[in-house]
Amino acid sequence: MTVEITSHEELRELLGAPMPRAITKERTVLHERDRQWLAASPFCLIATAGSDGSCDVSPKGDPPGFAVVLDEATIAIPERPGNRRADGYRNILDNPHVGLLFMIPGRTDTLRINGRARLVREAAYFDDMVVKGHRPILAVEVAVEQIFYHCAKAFLRSELWRPETWQPEVMPPRPRLIKEVEAPAETLADLERRYGPAYLDTLYRG
């Protein structure tokens, strides 16, 4: 039998009250340690939601420090060439609320930033976002509304950073996966060429 939770009161009764520090750790401006974290982070996840409530989470990665700190309560994340679906960007145009999760490889804690985003197609700081000669064509500016560090339990439970637990071979290589799931009409040889060593050449050009 499935028993659904349908109210805030029921949820709180089940989980219990949060620890006081879980509430008081929230901040609205960047601490110097936050700036250091952002300078060291090469990867983040951006969560967005459309006006109809549909959600998206998009990974963003670049050399450490790719998220530029504009002031004590504003950061910017560059766009890089991708699949051009722009699901998250279209959501931001409809609903500016975003959630960010910044990671540092090997660290089991994370930095969370929630705020309001806007899309910017040109700004002076774009010059600080150039990587391998590529200047972004847009950036996501986020006005910080909440910032705090998240505990390590999820990463410890999953053993995410322990190489001895990694099993990338449990799934077929990407070319075979694409052929089976997305593009059965393409030949495996063509897909292997596309996603082989030459794929690295597409990281900073469309």
Rank of each mutant, 00 (worst) to 15 (best):
Q146P: 01
P184C: 08
S158K: 03
V130F: 02
R157V: 09
R112C: 00
R118K: 13
V170K: 06
Y125I: 12
G99I: 04
P173W: 02
L191I: 02
H150S: 07
R162Y: 15
P136T: 00
G196P: 07
E164V: 07
L101R: 08
T165Q: 11
R194K: 13
C151L: 12
F102T: 08
W161Y: 06
E164F: 10
A189T: 14
T108K: 13
L203F: 09
F155G: 00
V170L: 05
A154D: 07
R157A: 13
R174K: 11
V140T: 12
R174S: 02
V170Q: 11
V170W: 03
R112K: 01
P105T: 03
A143T: 15
L160E: 07
A198H: 05
P105H: 03
P173G: 01
R193P: 00
G99L: 02
H97F: 07
Y195L: 03
D190K: 14
Q167I: 04
L119G: 02
V142D: 08
I147G: 09
R90P: 13
P175H: 06
P173V: 01
A124R: 13
P105M: 04
P136M: 06
D127L: 11
E159L: 02
N114E: 11
A189W: 07
Y125R: 13
P105D: 00
R112A: 05
V140C: 10
R176H: 12
Y149D: 04
D109Q: 15
D190F: 15
P105Q: 02
E180I: 01
L203C: 04
A117T: 08
R162M: 15
V144N: 00
A123N: 08
E169P: 06
T110V: 15
L160D: 02
L93S: 10
E186K: 14
W161V: 07
A185T: 12
P136R: 08
V131A: 00
V144I: 14
V120G: 04
P136D: 06
K153R: 14
G99N: 04
T165N: 12
G133Y: 05
L111G: 01
V131Q: 00
P96K: 02
C151Y: 13
F148Y: 11
C151M: 12
E145A: 10
P173K: 05
V120H: 01
K153Y: 10
N95Y: 11
G99K: 06
E192M: 03
L101V: 14
M103E: 00
I113Q: 05
G196I: 11
R107F: 03
R107S: 10
V181D: 01
L160P: 03
G115K: 04
R107V: 11
R116D: 06
L111T: 01
V144F: 02
I113H: 05
N114H: 08
D201F: 05
H97Y: 07
P96W: 06
Q146G: 04
I92S: 04
R90I: 09
L119M: 03
E186L: 15
R90W: 07
V140S: 06
Y149R: 08
Y195V: 03
G115L: 06
G99P: 09
D190A: 15
E159S: 07
W166P: 10
N91M: 04
L160I: 15
A185I: 11
R116P: 00
A185G: 10
R112P: 01
K132M: 01
P184Q: 04
F155E: 00
V140F: 08
Q167A: 13
H150F: 08
A123V: 03
R107P: 03
N95A: 02
